[in-house]
């Protein structure tokens, strides 16, 4: 649906925000762009949506070049910006209808009503924007972006500063849109958001796409597991006989934590090996549990690793 090819952006001050970015977004997927602050997420979105000129490279939206054929490209795109920017004195209904007209579509009150109802804004349609709460304002921005029936929706940090309940609601809205066939690209700090929502995840760091992967594959691939063994008797240190295993003491000597890679071949044997060695040393295990690393752990290790 979107192809980004060799995209670079250097701002007037000399800051290079994007370095030779290649990215393909598939039709109908939810793509999460993850990255620390200042990584270039917003710049990338801004270039695709036509808010920032690229220094090099090109962007195709459904095969329309977003510079040469900007009208066709932009008609397909809805953008929900990160900041709550609104004309304070207009009403919800007016501002959403305005957005539709601005994108060259004739008025369609039935569509606007559908959008407002889906975002539970219908009761507020006659309110002026300055009377709305922050969460409501963000929903208005989403309604504006959906007003012209885009095929691709960009959500730049959609749930920043939104309470938990509203965030869940927002996720429902996004899922419903995907069900209608809208392609969704969201940037986020909240890893749980990407974990919860995305089909594929891209990680961007210092202007470079570090990785693009199916979410499940990513978690499988990079997901190290932890096995925690709770001991009957506390230890002062890891016994020398067990030094061959990647073990660490935890809970003041009451537990041993074993970190392993669930996908690698010898793992099964290494766990049985560990258990056998524990037996040999005479350590008695009271309880054990394993934990799969979350996307957050993966992300943190990924960003740290490349630094």
């Amino acid at each position: 649906m979107i192809r980004v090819e060799g995209l670079s952006k250097t701002f007037a001050g000399g800051f290079q925000a994007l370095k030779d970015v290649d990215l393909t977004i598939r039709r109908g997927e939810i793509f999460a762009l993850l990255g620390p602050n200042g990584a270039g997420k917003t710049t990338l979105i801004s270039v695709i949506c036509g808010l920032v000129n690229a220094s090099r490279g090109r962007v195709l939206v459904d095969d329309h070049d977003n510079v040469r054929d900007y009208r066709a490209a932009r008609r397909l795109i809805g953008l929900v910006p990160q900041e709550l920017t609104n004309e304070a004195f207009t009403t919800v209904w007016d501002t959403v209808s305005f957005s539709r007209g601005l994108f060259g579509k004739p008025g369609d009150p039935a569509h606007i009503e559908r959008v407002l109802r889906a975002l539970t804004l219908w009761d507020k349609r006659h309110n002026r924007l300055l009377e709305l709460s922050g969460g409501m304002k963000r929903r208005v921005l989403i309604a504006k972006a959906l007003s012209h029936e885009p095929q691709v929706l960009f959500l730049d940090e959609p749930t920043a500063g939104v309470d938990v309940e509203l965030r869940r609601e927002m996720w429902e809205v996004v899922r419903a849109l995907r069900a209608e066939g809208v392609t969704i690209i969201l940037t986020t700090h909240y890893i749980e958001e990407a974990e919860e929502m995305a089909d594929r995840i891209g990680v961007i760091r210092a202007g470079e796409i570090v990785l693009v992967e199916e979410k499940h594959a990513l978690m499988r691939k990079l997901g190290s597991k932890e096995l925690t063994l709770h001991l009957h008797e506390p230890l002062d240190s890891v016994p020398p006989a067990l030094a061959g295993h990647a073990l660490a003491l935890a809970e003041e000597g009451h537990a041993l934590v074993y970190t392993y890679d669930a996908t690698s071949e010898q793992d099964g044997s290494s766990i049985s090996g560990l258990l056998a060695d524990l037996e040999a040393v005479g350590l008695r295990v009271k309880d054990l549990h394993t934990r799969q690393s979350s996307l957050e752990d993966i992300f943190v290790s990924l960003v740290r690793e490349r630094r």
């Binding site: 008609r75 910006p81 920017t85 609104n86 004309e87």
Partner: peptide, 12 residues
């Protein structure tokens, strides 16, 4: 106010 984003991203 920042709402210029909408004008600039519109197919205008």
């Amino acid at each position: 106010s920042g709402s210029i984003y909408e004008i600039l991203s519109a197919p205008m």
